[in-house]
Structure formats: C-alpha cells, structure tokens
Design a binder for these strands. Structure first.
Lengths: 260, 260
DNA sequence: CGCTATTCTCGTATACCCTACGAGAATTGA
DNA sequence: TCAATTCTCGTAGGGTATACGAGAATAGCG
C-alpha cells in the first residue's frame, strides 16, 4: 500500500499540532477531561508501524492498542493524514543533529557523515518512513532541523548559498532514499520471515528459463565476477547494498567538493 | 496509501506472467473464450493510475473501466499484487535503452544521461511508480534491461565489474528517487489542483508564528539570498528541484569518474 | 445544590477496498 | 448430445477511513 498525506484540513490546524511542543497550547477548563494525550496516540501509532509495517498503524489498530474506541482518536487528530504527518515529524526529530550553537565535527565531511549515520539509524528504527511520500512534507521542527543542519554543512564546505541549497537537496535525496530502501528491506525480511537471499533463490527459475546471456552480457560478466553478491542481482545482498551506499555517498561528496 | 507487492503466490506463476511476451504461452482449446486480454487489463490499470494516482487503480475501478465484473479480473491475474508487478515491469520496459548490439552514445556520460532522460520521462508519464516499493521488484524484462544498460555504461567508463555494480546501483538509486519525487510532485499538483507554490504559501503562518531565525540561521541566509526559489523551502520550486537534480547527478558522475 | 455549556467518548452506518467461494454460462472435443 | 473445461461474476466476509449523533463527564455559575 501507498501513503499519501498533507492534503486535508486547514493548514493552520496541522501546523499547530506539529509545533505543539514549541508553542504553548491554550488550556481549556470546561468540558470532559481527555483520557489520552496526543503524544501517546502518535507514539502508539509509531510503535505499531515500527513493528508490523505502516499498514498496521490503522486507526482501528491504534485505538485498540490504546483501549479506546476508534472514533475517540478523532478528538486528538483531525484525520489519518494528520496523524501520519505527526508520526513523520516526530520521527524526523529523533535524529541528534547539532543545532546552531552546538558542538559538531570539525570537518564538513564528517558533518555530512553524521547526517548520514543519524538518518540511517532513524530509518532502521522506523522502516515505514520509506513508504511515506515526502512531497509536501509535514513542515514541523523535525524537518526544518534536518534541513538547517545539512545546509550548514555545505556552508562549512564553503559553498555559496545557492549552491549549498542544491547540494543539500541532492545529498538528502540520495541519503534518504538509500537509507529508506535499506530499512524497508530489513522490515520485509522480518515481517515475511523470508530473507532476501531466499526470495531471490525462490526465483531461480528465472535464470534457467528466461535469462538470456546474449541479451544481458554485462550482468553475466558481473555475475561471473562474483560481484552480484552471491545469489542475487538487483540490489542483492546486504553487504552489496551497504557498499553501494557508501560508494555513492563518497563519490557524490567527492564531486561536490571538487566543484567547490 | 502505500504499495507493497511481490509477496503473494508461487513465483513461477508470476514469472510466467512477467515474461509472457518472450515466452510463448501454451494454448488451450477447451472451455469458454476469454473476453479480455492480460495486456488490456494491465494497460487499463496503468491508464487509471496515470490519470488519478495509484489508488484509482483498484480492482473495482479497473473492472468498471473494462465493463466487466470485478471478479473477472481474477481470471487474468492472481491478485492485485501481481497486477502491480505487471504494471511496473510494463512501464519499466517503456524506456528506450539500447541493448547489447544497438547504437548508443559514444561517451559513457552521455549514456548515463540517456538513462536519466528516459527514466525521468518514464516517471513523468507514470508518477505512481514512485510510490511502489522497489525492494523485491518484479524481475521482468523491464527491470533487467535497465540494469543491464546502466551496468554497461559503467563498463564503458572502464570500471571493473565489482565497482561497476556499485556505481550502477548508486546512480540508479539517485536517479530513480529524484525522478520519482519530481513526477509525484506534478501528479499532486494535477490531482489536487494546487501548485506547490500555493501549498507553501498556504503555510505562510509558519514563517510568521513558528520559524525562529536564531534556530535556523543557514536557512535564513539561503532565503535572504533568494536561493530558496521564491516562496518556498524544502525542495521548493520546480526550477530549484530540476537544478538540484542536475547538480547531484553531475557531481555524482564527477566523483565516480575521478575514482575510476 | 442543580443547571447548562462545553468537551470528550464511541456505536452505528456508509462507502470504499481485496478476494474466497460457488453457481451458471459458454465452448469444444468426444 | 453431453461431458469436460474454462471463463464470468454475484454474494459475502473481513479489512479500511470517517460522518453523524447520542450519551457521559466536567467546570463554573446561579
């Protein structure tokens, strides 16, 4: 399944929810006391998605986990879309990225490395994040903090503002998508109980019945070289994925540094 | 919504469907004649998804568009998952990428450029592709052709097999995800009838009420430089996205070339 | 204390989604 | 002709989100 979001209600309401920690919420005295807290709802949804994938974080499941009726959730959140936005920004905020005054690695490259490490760890904890669209993202503190940090590393490299912006976007695109793929792969292995190697192995027919060496000479060469990662092509083994990630990031940064 | 796939039935059946054009299908004389063809089903589903997003390509909608009962589709396709796989590989195959013997640009860089152009065009025609998970992809002719081609461009650059594999994976990761984001952005503009600029503008409250210049000095600098792309941050205007894409690809290739 | 305004709770109902099952229709070879 | 085979698709069951409205709980006021 796919996940859209950020379409729904008035943006003011969503923004208020996203920034609730920064901005004090007006307290209302009147009326029945709430049983839950927004944070509890969001955290529960995240926990469910972490464990069994984004589909498990349905309104019904979240409510059941909290021991309330499904419709009760709608007191805390205008819609599922909003909940998703909150989940995303909550998780984006988990990354420990130094802010303006904080200590950080001296080298710009190490700074980017920190972004990469934190992002990969975040995706690893929350693999479902990879399946949420980031077009029109929840513009919350989490998203802004990450963008600010990455942008500042490009300033540290000495890029002028316009180039720094482009470079930060390119790096974020690469890191986020690669880290997302990696994490999603692990989630699928966990939830299906089948390793990726086993999955490829199950498709052994392919190589025998359909694969034509003349049509795919280069793949064959890589295969014979043993570089495909054993039993698999197409992303292949965990080691190959990790190596490919490093390779891509290193060379992207090389290229950016060379052009600085 | 999110889209999973490639889990379901026996892999043999799926592979047979995916490779149906290459492999002749056994003809059966007995029994009622089918009203539809598999290709028609797949094409209809693709058309629906192209126009109104992946969610519109439901079994019910596809059947309605074809003027048959919903359950009729299950004669042609074992499940929705399989249909999705077929849609994906069909679309992957649209890219005009030269095969082993075919003419191609002489320069390896131009060859990669061709992959990039064809991929962007493909995503532009089929924006929903961005929301389909590519872990455990449909291992059909479309996927293999693209991998073969990209791999061969890295051979053209002179990389040894193992490095070529890593480089091809890195480039595919970057190009596919950037192109996907771009296309999805256009789809959202089209289906919501709201441009991205308008969307950001609607969030004007943010900058006034929540944005803290001290917390986000670098973003502020970029903003003041006019590099944010007018009204937006976070990916921003179409021009900024396109520039960022070019910037990233060029520098990634620079880095790979430098390390060759 | 009682009343009222306010707020939260959540059962019911609607409208989608996928798909298992099985009855019936169509076709062909025997 | 009729049996075997294959395709068609209505019904039903279990999932999803959420609109609506009735009822419960609370705070403050008279």
């Amino acid at each position: 399944m796919t996940v859209q979001h950020s379409g729904g209600g008035p943006p003011d309401r969503t923004l208020a929810l996203l920034w609730r920690k920064t901005q004090p919420t007006p307290d209302r005295a009147r009326g029945r006391k709430p049983t839950l807290q927004l944070d509890t709802v969001v955290d529960t949804a995240i926990a469910l998605a972490d464990e069994r994938g984004i589909a498990a974080a349905s309104m019904g499941n979240v409510a059941k986990a909290l021991g309330v009726g499904t419709m009760t959730l709608y007191t805390y959140v205008p819609s599922k879309e909003e909940l998703l936005d909150l989940m995303v920004d909550q998780v984006l905020l988990e990354r420990r990225l130094p802010g303006p005054g904080d200590d950080r690695p001296a080298d710009w490259r190490a700074q980017v490395e920190l972004y990469s490490d934190e992002t990969r760890a975040m995706f690893s904890r929350h693999p479902w994040l990879a399946r949420v669209s980031t077009i029109r993202p929840p513009v919350g503190p989490g998203m802004l903090a990450a963008r600010e940090y990455l942008l500042s590393t490009m300033f540290a490299l000495g890029l002028p503002p316009a180039r720094a912006n482009l470079a930060a976007l390119a790096i974020a695109t690469y890191v986020d998508s690669a880290a997302g793929a990696e994490a999603e792969s692990e989630l699928i292995e966990r939830t299906t109980g089948q390793t990726n190697d086993a999955w490829w192995h199950e498709r052994g027919d392919l190589w025998e019945n359909y694969f034509d060496v003349d049509r795919y000479p280069t793949m064959t060469a890589v295969w014979n070289d043993g570089a495909g990662g054993g039993t698999s092509y197409g992303g292949g083994t965990r080691e190959v994925s990790t190596q490919a990630y490093r390779f891509g990031l290193d060379h992207l940064l090389d290229g950016i540094a060379a052009g600085a």
